[in-house]
Structure formats: structure tokens, C-alpha cells
Design a binder for these strands. Structure first.
Lengths: 182, 182
DNA sequence: TCAGAGGCTGACCGATCGGTCAGATCAGTG
DNA sequence: CACTGATCTGACCGATCGGTCAGCCTCTGA
């Protein structure tokens, strides 16, 4: 039990990511994380205020990128370019952060209630609106939502596919599947 | 507390469906279901062996239809017709049982471990295989999985859309989004 | 009239969860 | 040496969960 450099914080984060990916956020107890790290549950709660704080730190980079994508979309002058930026930006984000997104798989509805994800709901509504080409038609909205949810739900499952291959496949899918603007 | 016809069984089922749709399966306690019905938790467990039995009875019709779709797909002679049958059959199932599917939203990974859903994993793999036109190409598999997961994840959210409208929109989406066979 | 079955209740159980707390250990500092 | 502050532990807490159990009430039919 020699005292190494206090890298425990990072160890906990890594262990939590591994466990969350297998059993989900709610399905993973603090005790499991502690066991994987090789420390006590109390040690985990010494480094993180509570369980949610672990998730917050894990998701922070992805959320920051999502926020900036939201800004970029809002700055587009017309529906067509907004649709293009939204599609390309979302695919890029999904591919880059597919591990982080996979952590949330199957727990979106409830995790979205948590403070960390306070604004995600509005952001995803704007994303869908942009991908639907700002159209009010039900078919366009359905199409955008199905594709967005499908990508978010599955992007973490293609561990055997390279980033480039996945990005190309998803972009090609969006290009032929999204309803054209107008 | 007059003794009406013992409709409690059905009341519990309906109450559970309502609660599951809002807070999910795991997020709904037997006590919540009992409170919504207006009986004790013990009464719920008098009518159902355990919590899982409620879910089983709720999902039985949808699972039966899914099984028969699996059989129909397996009976198709060539990839093209299998793809068509899979797409049309899945859309039909998703629209008809969108309420039931919505109950599972966000809990697929773990609920699929339960005995009720013992064979669903293999069935969905065959569904994806058929929708991908029996192709081994990564892009075809990605495309099929994204669309299947997206439809399953979202079909319960379109409460303001009629069955016909939803079916047409999803079928149109699949027709232009799925990679053609060959 | 009364036995018994069906329907239901309240009290209770063991397990697990996230989280708290007092204190032990140890490196660094003066 | 004494002291401090960071790190970590084991014991413990209250809440909640799914599930059990003994027994009560009411209705039915012989």
C-alpha cells in the first residue's frame, strides 16, 4: 500500500469510464468503481463530491464541443447551410466522442435530468430543427430525430471500425436520408 | 372499498404501463404502481409473481409479432425481398407497438438480459442482417443499425402523429436510406 | 349457517445504494 | 522533533428497493 503519486483521481475516472461502458451509470455502484481502482469507496468520494461529479468530469469535453456546435449552427444564415453544418458537426462529434456517448447509452432520458446536461435538451431540439431543414413537416422532423437518435445510440458499438470509415458511412447515410431543404 | 369485479389485474397492468412510460422500468417502484392503482404493494405482488412478470405480460403481444416477423424474413428466398419484408415489417411493428416500445426506451441494454427478451438479441441481429441486404460491408451494417435503433428509440415520441402518417414517413426514410442490395 | 377460497393488507425482511464521519497514516516543513 | 495538511480507511447511516408472510375480510355455495 505504498503511497504513489496521487494519481488516484485519474485512476478513478478511468475505472468509472470502463464500468459505465459495461453496466451503465446507474448500474455501476461506487463500490464497484472503488474495487476496480483498488481503493475504498470513501476514497472515491474523497476525490469526487458525489457520483454525479464523476460523470460530469467524464462528459465535460464532449459537452463543450456540443455547445460550440450549437453556436456554429445558430450562426448559419440559411436553412440549407444550417442543415449541412448540423449534419457534419454531429457526425464529427459522434465519431470523436463515441466512447463517452456510449457511456450514456440506454440512460439518456433520466441522465438528461441531471444538472450536467441541463441545456442538452434545448441544444438537441435546435440540432433536430436544423437537420430537418427548419421545416415544420412531420416527415422531416421524424426523419431528423430517427437519424440523430440512431447515431447517438449506436456510434459506440462500432469498436472494430476506424474513425474515418465510420464518419464516411454516417455522412453518406445522412446525405441520402435527410430530406432536402425547401 | 366495495368489492368490484376483480379487475385489479388489468388496473395494475395499465398503471404499470403509464408509469414505465414516464420513469422507465427500473425507475418505477412497485410502490409507485400500487399507489397509482390505489392498492398495496403486496396486492401488486399477489397478482404478479414479481416485477418482471408485469413487464413480461405487457410486452408479450409485441414480442409475438416480432417472432413472426423473424420467421417471415427467414422464409424469403433472396436478399432483396428479405430487405423489403424486414423494412416493412419492422416499421409496421414499430408503429403498432410504439407505446410498448417506448416503455423500454433507454433500458434496452439491461432489459435485454431478462428472460422475457431471451431471443430478442438474435432476432435483432437477423433483422439488421436482412436490412443490410445480407451484405458484409461495414457501411451497410452501420446504416441498418442506425436506422433500426433510431426508429426503436423514437417511435414512442410521436404521440401527435397518426399511425398512417408515421408509417409513411418511416417507410420513405428507409427506402431512400437503406443501401440497395447488390 | 358455516367452511373455504379469493382478494387483499400492514408489518417486516435482507440487500444495496449513495453518502458521512472520526480517525489513522504519511510526506513535507520549520 | 513537533506540527500540518493531504490522502485514505472502516464503520456506520438513512433511504429505498423487491419480495415474504401471517392473517383479515368478504363473498359463495353446500
Amino acid at each position: 500500500m505504498a503511497r504513489p503519486t496521487p494519481q488516484t483521481h485519474g485512476d478513478i475516472l478511468a475505472a468509472a469510464a470502463r464500468r459505465f461502458a459495461v453496466t451503465g451509470y446507474r448500474g455501476t455502484s461506487l463500490q464497484e468503481i472503488a474495487s476496480e481502482v483498488g481503493c475504498s469507496k470513501a476514497a472515491v468520494l474523497y476525490h469526487f463530491a458525489n457520483k454525479e461529479a464523476i460523470l460530469t468530469e467524464l462528459m465535460a469535453p464532449a459537452i463543450a464541443v456540443l455547445q460550440s456546435l450549437d453556436d456554429r449552427i445558430a450562426a448559419q444564415p440559411d436553412p440549407a447551410s444550417a442543415q449541412r453544418v448540423a449534419a457534419e458537426g454531429f457526425v464529427d462529434l459522434a465519431v470523436r466522442f463515441r466512447r463517452e456517448i456510449a457511456l450514456l447509452r440506454g440512460e439518456f432520458p433520466e441522465l438528461l435530468q441531471q444538472p450536467v446536461f441541463a441545456h442538452i435538451h434545448e441544444i438537441s431540439e435546435r440540432l433536430i430543427d436544423a437537420m430537418a431543414g427548419r421545416s415544420e413537416r412531420a416527415s422531416a422532423r421524424i426523419c431528423a430525430l430517427v437519424l440523430l437518435a440512431g447515431i447517438a445510440e449506436t456510434c459506440g458499438q462500432f469498436g472494430d471500425v476506424t474513425d474515418e470509415e465510420l464518419r464516411d458511412a454516417l455522412l453518406a447515410l445522412l446525405r441520402r436520408a435527410l430530406e432536402p431543404v425547401g
